[in-house]
Design a binder for these strands. Structure first.
Length: 122
DNA sequence: AACTTGACGAGGG
DNA sequence: CCCCTCGCCAAGT
């Protein structure tokens, strides 16, 4: 099964991230599972650090419900601040309740049999 | 072409 | 809760 990639590896990640509404978040691993094949949480994170404008990178956090941007290009507290301004509430240890804020995109399922069912034919 | 570097995640201590 | 180890895979050197 050969999947023809019009978009780059990274853009597939961005397509999903762009759909995350304000006040909601997704995790790196969640996105990796959705894309399946060749994608891991690690590579999703790698794609995010180079996200273009228009990609709400701040809405992607780790599976513990915390921001992981520290020491790279963006301070953790800044990412958290942005999310808080979007309505996400963090507890004292900088953690948010994923059960409450994690967004589950509709139409996307882990390892789909037929990729044409994802968004219909674009 | 080989080696290193991560915005990760699960598991164990 | 904090720390470490290992597996994962694209990108940059």
């Amino acid at each position: 099964m050969t999947v023809v990639n019009d978009k780059t590896y990274r853009e597939r990640v961005y397509e999903i991230v762009r759909r995350v509404p304000a006040g909601k978040v997704m995790t790196y691993g969640q996105i990796a599972l959705i894309l399946g094949e060749g994608y891991t949480a690690r590579t999703v994170g790698y794609c995010m650090h180079a996200a273009d404008e228009g990609v709400p990178w701040q809405r992607v956090i780790n599976s513990q419900g915390k921001c992981s941007t520290g020491k790279m290009t963006m301070p953790v507290n800044l990412q958290q601040s942005i999310l808080e301004s979007e309505g996400v509430v963090f507890s004292g240890s900088g953690k948010c309740d994923l059960a409450m804020y994690q967004w589950h995109p509709e139409g996307y399922e882990p390892e789909p049999d037929d990729q044409t069912k994802l968004f219909g034919t674009d």
